[in-house]
């Protein structure tokens, strides 16, 4: 039996961002995209959603302070 890790309550929602989304979200940022936190290509989550190197994952997780919080990770080897 294979467990779908994405459904586990401790795994937050991961989405691969499309180019248009990236353009919209990072329109006026004060940092370089390569400086975002990383996620391994071999990470179970990135394998599970078929992310490719260079993709940006949008992670929506519950936050104690802000309710929900959106953060990003760059997929790297």
């Amino acid at each position: 039996m294979k467990i779908d890790i994405l459904k586990h309550n401790l795994v937050p929602k991961h989405e691969i961002m499309s180019n248009s989304e990236i353009k919209k979200s990072f329109k006026d940022l004060d940092y370089e995209i390569k400086n975002l936190p990383k996620i391994k290509l071999s990470d179970p989550v990135s394998k599970n959603i078929d992310a490719k190197e260079g993709d940006i994952l949008k992670i929506t997780r519950d936050s104690q302070t802000a309710g929900t919080f959106v953060t990003y990770r760059v997929v790297e080897k």
């Binding site: 940092y31 400086n35 975002l36 936190p37 936050s63 802000a66 919080f69 953060t71």
Partner: peptide
């Protein structure tokens, strides 16, 4: 390197 995109998330 980015640690948080928003301080303390809120």
């Amino acid at each position: 390197l980015v640690i948080q995109t928003m301080f303390g998330e809120d």
